[in-house]
Design a protein around this nucleic acid. Structure first.
Lengths: 120, 120
DNA sequence: CAGAATCCGAAGCGATACTG
DNA sequence: CAGTATCGCTTCGGATTCTG
């Protein structure tokens, strides 16, 4: 990241152009909630995952939360739902390009947090 | 950011080392909630801010939420509280180095979100 | 001025039973 | 198999009043 870009970011905050701040909040919402990060993590691990396999691996999650979280992640286009009309029904979830593209940003968050917990 | 670092991040996710994922969640919590980003933004704008000035500028915030958010931000060491024992009481809030250091990460979040809302 | 205390409604989340 | 529907609990946030 360039230094000037950060300065522009800070300047856009200073000059009350809160669009920058809003986009941050939107981005936070996308991966917010109790289970979304776990779901994304699981899909990264397995590449494509079925509903019940998620339910088994995400220990403690309920049908409701898994369904809702998947719907929101799909609505935000981080994951892709593929339904195969076999018998029994088979549905697979995988990351979209957008979903993959947020991983580096999550890495930055992780690095930031680790830096200030090991240093102190 | 280096490509190898991202690959290591993904690999650490794949290999079930969820410490990476947890640190992401902790980082998200630090700036989560309804008002914390607004508070940080305001402090960036004004450098040092007093309690009631925040309350005036953060339109709609209540005493409770402002107090709680400030306490949490201070506990997470993103902001610093300085009390001057004058009459009447004066308290000023400002960013710590840790608080400043998260701004580039928030910029990345902002850039990520903007990329995928203008492109589509 | 800078909060603390209390009460209340809304939202998030969980448990269970049921369905195409 | 992959969900939906319903219900209840718990947490979050808002409104108001009070205090050092």
């Amino acid at each position: 990241m360039e230094q000037t870009e950060l300065e522009e970011f800070i300047e856009s905050i200073r000059s009350s152009d809160i669009s920058g701040e809003c986009s941050v909040k939107r981005a936070l919402d996308v991966v917010g909630g109790k289970w979304k990060l776990n779901i994304l993590t699981l899909i990264v691990q397995l590449d494509t995952v079925r509903f019940n396999e998620m339910k088994r691996r995400l220990y403690g999650i309920t049908n409701t939360m898994l369904t809702n979280s998947l719907k929101e992640l799909e609505a935000d286009k981080l994951i892709k739902r593929t339904q195969y009309n076999e018998m029994p029904l088979r549905v697979e979830y995988s990351l979209t390009e957008k979903g993959k593209s947020i991983l580096p940003v999550l890495l930055e968050l992780s690095k930031w947090w680790k830096q200030y917990t090991t240093d102190i």
